[in-house]
Design a protein around this nucleic acid. Structure first.
Lengths: 203, 203
DNA sequence: ATGATACTTGACTAATCGGTCAACAATTAT
DNA sequence: ATAATTGTTGACCGATTAGTCAAGTATCAT
């Protein structure tokens, strides 16, 4: 009961839009309110701070994004194809964002995590949590690929950290150089990376 | 002639210190001035803006850092050893920074580039330029490694972009998770990455 | 010494920031 | 209807922000 509202949703919409395009630090509460057409009093009715809003917006983004991951990483799909799927989806998403914003944006969670560092615990923890959720999909896929003999056996955790670091690094490069082409064959590059062997003569 | 000063150097010191620890957006001109013990009038005597200071500070940092790169990537050193050198130096630097700041910081240039995106042309161009300078060392090393049969032949530009993305990605992960151990064996991981083969049965 | 130059200082703006509040409006259970 | 609840509004606060400026100070060439 009480008055109904979707101002909180509009605020999260605005926050996500702005956070994709700009840095966390350069987005002000006033900016978000203006874009959402919500007065600041209402902002503080729903959210305790910009950090609070960011965390809840990330949560909502995850709810919308997770089903796509479930589809891309469906166990019925051969493991290496799952990985190709998610790489191609990453590229496709960057193409979409490029059309919407006029430039290559990269990954919000990575950019946010990089910017926040350890200055805002709530955001840092949320970014860690979400990236870890994504990681779990990779872990299953890579483990399945190892079982199928498609990826060399060995510490799955390490392998997944590496392949995600590689993918995230390439996307970050694409953002810095505002160059979509750099990740157009992301799936191939990631596939090559996963075929790495142990050094023949280890020290 | 005229009054002498090292206020500009102190301002660059302060800016670099703060930029390593915090994000560009969260460091204010007042913060920098306070840390450098310089009044704002003097700030604007030497620098046109925070962006201007950042660019010149990065330039000075590069002047101090370049000799180390020259040493690590000396042509007299076998190519794969050059790469091990720079990976180990990266780790060692992160250990040092960890002791100084109390947490894992990652790479300023990458963090800065990620945060700035395309919002400040001068900083973006400087970061691009410096990362490209670093890249040139890798290009020579990888090309030499290919000549020696230590790395598979193929597009050097692509290979270097990939290996740098990988390394930068791992360092970014270490920062996000505030976990030095993740990059303690950076050299091994990078070595493995460079041993990747082309897929046996390409689609 | 003196004048030109280069740097410093502190006081000053105007704008913007995050955050608060009391009064008001819409919704619903009773 | 009305009371309780929930959301909205616009004015307001103090702090901080980037940036300016005139007056003062140190340094050096002559």
């Amino acid at each position: 009961m009480g008055r109904t509202s979707n101002a909180d949703q509009r605020l999260m919409d605005a926050a996500l839009y702005l956070l994709w395009g700009e840095s966390y630090g350069s987005v002000t509460i006033d900016d978000i309110c203006k874009r959402a057409d919500v007065r600041k009093g209402s902002f503080y009715h729903f959210f305790g701070s910009k950090s609070d809003l960011a965390v809840r917006a990330l949560d909502r983004m995850w709810v919308e994004y997770k089903p796509q991951l479930d589809e891309m990483f469906a166990p019925s799909i051969p493991p290496m194809e799952r990985i190709r799927n998610t790489c191609n989806a990453t590229f496709a998403m960057q193409v979409e964002l490029h059309e919407k914003y006029g430039r290559v944006l990269g990954c919000v969670m990575c950019s946010l995590g990089s910017e926040i560092g350890n200055r805002d615990d709530a955001i840092r923890d949320k970014v860690r949590y979400l990236l870890d959720e994504v990681r779990s999909y990779w872990v299953t896929a890579i483990a399945d690929a190892q079982d199928a003999g498609l990826v060399e056996a060995g510490d799955v955790t390490c392998k997944v950290r590496c392949v995600m670091a590689f993918s995230e690094g390439l996307v970050a490069q694409a953002r810095l150089h505002n160059d979509l082409e750099r990740i157009s064959d992301l799936a191939d590059r990631v596939g090559e990376h996963l075929l790495a062997r142990q050094p023949v003569s280890a020290a």
